[in-house]
Design a protein around this nucleic acid. Structure first.
Lengths: 334, 334
DNA sequence: CTGTTAGCGCATTCAG
DNA sequence: CTGAATGCGCTAACAG
């Protein structure tokens, strides 16, 4: 590997000149710059990230903090992940996966202590997430994908639940439905203040009221069995219900089973819309599901972009980034 | 952050002593060691990875090389990924996602040039994968998840296609089936020498012959439409066919549609087994699919473990690691 | 067994 | 505008 010294020699200048030529922290004459550029090209020089980091600049490594992985990481977060990695790459950063138990603050402390990461992306934010406070106090660069009331707006990237709700309910109303059911995530997730469970419920109920749609909301554990139970109960309680909104991927198979157990068929007797799930998944079902696609790719992309903006000190944009889901019509609605 | 100097001072010894105490590269008296350990604890010292790297040791960062992400990364690789990250973590390494176009060797060269990574994990190996040769020549530590004939065995972690085939066909035979269909991945994948498409076909056909099962193999693009077409043709051509093996997740919905289009029902008229797909996915279907679960988690785990073994010079185990799929009985077979 | 010291490659003072 | 020298934190000779 060529070092900065090599290229300085080759260009006939001092190392510092090369350094400044690269960073642009000091005006360098065009002529010298040209020579340097050429030398760099010829030796295909690449600054050693370690040395650079040691000397006080960053590592250009970003840490994506995930919850310990056993349970989470569905098809949804993979899209987020891949776009995030892509974004990082395109801005010349690296993305590494942090799967330690970051909610244990002493673990988080260890992670940040080794100064390997220039910044962090936090996911799966809960109400009053201690990690947010912790990172803020330490003054570390980070963004969150999700919502936390005490975070400065420019640090948040989240789903636009309100718009998502409006869009799906507008569609529902347009199709003539007047009574809808909403199968949310688990009560536990809701109580923990998990963004989607809380915000989607609020937005949906609020919007339904405004549109004059009757909405019955139920919580549901992410399992086939629960899906079946909840669907059956919900439908028994609301005989006039004609459309079901589901934001619970794991429960979907059970819900479908429950529906057919009641002798109903989708979409003839009942329309079904999956909320914030990935298209890949929605299309696996038969009939394929009408769904509001979760903007995971955008979340990943913007998360990284915003973090890099912060790192590089250009905060043109101080607002929160909100991205709505996208409606895809499948075969599960009429 | 406390540096090695701080703890040396606090323990009343020289920095080198601390360094040696940590690395164990030199005998240190118990007493001194104790003092050092205490100082480290009190200042909760953590060696700066960059400095360590610059001084010639590794970075303890592993690079997981993925194909550019748009198309790949299904629910399968996410399991692999998560386990890999977990494994890395447990051995005190970091895992970063490399999504550059590594098949472009000059891009790969750039990646390895900055010496940020101690080793690499390659996925999606094709026949005569140039990257394998390239990394070998450079003498860089790496392992592949997949197969390449010219790779030393101890560098490979792969699915045990033979055992997988034997297991699934034994089950098939036991259930009394005599004629089976196999819907493979695309012809294109097969021609590129993509491991699963090639090896599974060979193992399945070989094993079927030995067991006296008639097997009709078809290629199929990973799409709903193709799935439907291929299923219909296959079933028309083989009226006596009673079980379908499918190694093509994306085509599954189409295949099921094709089956019912022919007026057949699963599992009454036809059994269906999905090969090497994730349980999460198989359980999404209705009826839930009997499947050979892909050992993605084990692949990820062992991939990292083996790489670390290589990095740390302990190659107890020189053989190739082969992991078979696991049979899960669902509702799609009788 | 322990201490001193010279780099690793780069950014950045401080002098020209 | 440019160059020489210093230090980032750590490892590994080299000397006791």
């Amino acid at each position: 590997m060529a070092t900065i010294k090599d290229i300085a020699k080759r260009a006939g200048v001092a190392v510092s000149t090369v350094s400044y030529a690269i960073s642009g922290n000091r005006p360098i004459s065009e002529e010298v710059k040209k020579r340097i550029r050429q030398a760099m090209a010829e030796l295909d020089y690449q600054p050693n990230p370690m040395a650079r980091a040691l000397a006080g600049k960053g590592t250009r490594i970003l840490g994506l903090i995930l919850d310990p992985l056993d349970r989470s990481l569905g098809i949804t977060e993979i899209d987020l992940l891949s776009r995030a990695a892509e974004a990082a790459r395109s801005m010349n950063y690296h993305l590494t996966l942090l799967t330690d138990d970051s909610r244990n603050l002493s673990v988080l402390e260890e992670i940040i202590a080794d100064k390997l990461f220039d910044g962090f992306i936090l996911m799966e934010i809960h109400k009053e997430d201690e990690r947010v406070r912790f990172l803020s106090e330490k003054g570390l660069p980070f963004v969150i994908i999700g919502r936390d009331d005490r975070t400065q707006d420019f640090r948040s990237i989240d789903i636009d639940f309100q718009k998502t709700a409006e869009q799906v309910l507008a569609h529902v109303k347009e199709k003539g439905h007047r009574e809808a059911g909403f199968i949310n995530q688990s009560l536990n997730a809701f109580n923990r203040g998990y963004g989607p469970a809380v915000a989607m419920k609020a937005s949906l109920e609020d919007t339904a009221r405004r549109l004059g749609i009757k909405l019955d909301t139920r919580f549901c554990l992410p399992s086939r069995e629960e899906g079946e139970n909840v669907a059956v109960t919900l439908l028994r309680d609301n005989p006039a219900l004609s459309v079901l909104l589901v934001m619970n991927d794991q429960a979907l198979p059970g819900i479908l089973k429950g529906i057919s157990a009641l002798g109903l068929s989708v979409p003839k007797d009942l329309s079904l819309i999956s909320l914030l799930s990935s298209s890949k998944l929605a299309e696996m079902f038969h009939p394929s599901l009408t769904h509001m696609e979760i903007p995971s790719r955008e979340l990943g992309w913007h998360g990284v972009c915003r973090l890099v903006e912060i790192l590089e000190g250009r905060q043109e944009n101080r607002g929160m980034i909100l991205i709505p889901g996208t409606l895809h019509i499948g075969e599960s609605t009429i």
